[in-house]
Design a protein around this nucleic acid. Structure first.
Lengths: 190, 190
DNA sequence: ATCATAAGCGGAACAACGTTCCGCTGACAA
DNA sequence: TTGTCAGCGGAACGTTGTTCCGCTTATGAT
């Protein structure tokens, strides 16, 4: 009948699981993805065994948090497109994207480490975020706000690299650079 | 009289030190910069205490190897310029540079990790390699082999990123891309 | 409501790492 | 040749990721 999961989870188990995800999100944002698993378990009020029951490897926890946040970021595009006019929606989403990338300290290192555990992440990143940005760009272009032709994928990568380059005051710097890019996209053709 | 080091090293101490550096170079090249210190000590036939006597932190060992290799790469530019005509010298040095970068798996991660131990490395990298490449470029330009105006720093960074992007068959890919860039630099102006 | 059962939990225990420490050895000046 | 201390080796410690197992307790049948 239903194509659901093979088995229903026990209620307390699901609760611990979400608590764990929240804690991991916080800790990764505050201390980077290299934070100890023990710290995450403690802040979630959960034992170590529980962490490894739900996420057999440390990298699985990282992947789960990352995908959740990518999903949230992609869905924000839809909400923003509904709430604001095209140009404003694009602006706000780019800032949202910058904030998302800024919490990813240490992940770039893991990505380039050659560890196969992470090699699926960039694909997921593109698959979810590219369409999101493309639809915003299309809207802005249709409204005549954006006149320059630019690929969504290029924009995503460019901003990501702007953010990962510097580390401490990176956020204000990144925001400024993104504003610059957005302004550039609004220029008239010559 | 002499402004040398404050004290002469004991002969055996210097021997162990160079043995250590060689071993570290090998191991880092084979297993990446995340290789265990114990393995390096063992392959050098040296105790752990000796490693930490010469290099108080793991990162000091990485820095030492890195700087040695940067120096060697910079000096290779001088040799090549003497042995070959300008265009050939440039080609060969770029391949040499690609080989150097290719042994740096894992280092990009360390560099972006925010660890202050590594923040001096990029500066050293530029300081030594930029002049080296600039002199080769100047020679090639003077000989009329290279006609496009390109900054040495940009070339170095571009190639480094080409190499770090892919990881397994990265070397052949990188070589091909570098050939492409070099060929592009030889184009006539339109 | 009660109970049997096993899903799920906590945290002790293990392995691999970076780093510290200290007793012994042997290189070098006298 | 000999005394001394620079320098060595590796045991030991603290912190990590990961495994394991005895106990707790949610859950469905009664």
């Amino acid at each position: 009948m239903q194509g659901e999961e093979p088995r229903r989870m026990r209620a307390d188990s699901r609760q611990k699981m979400t608590s764990l995800l929240e804690s991991a999100t916080d800790v990764f944002a505050k201390s980077g993805v290299d934070a100890p698993v023990r710290l995450i378990a403690e802040k979630a009020g959960v034992g170590l065994g529980t962490v490894y029951r739900h996420f057999p490897q440390r990298s699985d926890l990282i992947k789960a948090v990352f995908q959740t946040q990518v999903d949230a970021c992609a869905e924000a595009a839809i909400d923003l497109a509904r709430l604001y006019e095209p140009g404003e929606a694009l602006d706000r989403w780019m800032q949202r994207y910058v904030d998302f990338i800024a919490t990813k300290r240490g992940l770039a290192g893991a990505l380039h480490s050659g560890d196969p555990a992470y090699c699926a992440l960039p694909a997921y990143f593109n698959q979810r975020l590219c369409p999101a940005l493309e639809s915003l760009l299309a809207g802005a272009r249709a409204a005549g706000v954006v006149r320059v032709k630019v690929a969504a994928k290029d924009l995503l990568i460019a901003v990501a690299q702007l953010c990962s380059g510097s580390q401490d005051d990176g956020l204000v710097f990144a925001r400024r650079m993104v504003q610059l890019i957005l302004a550039g996209m609004r220029q008239e053709h010559k």
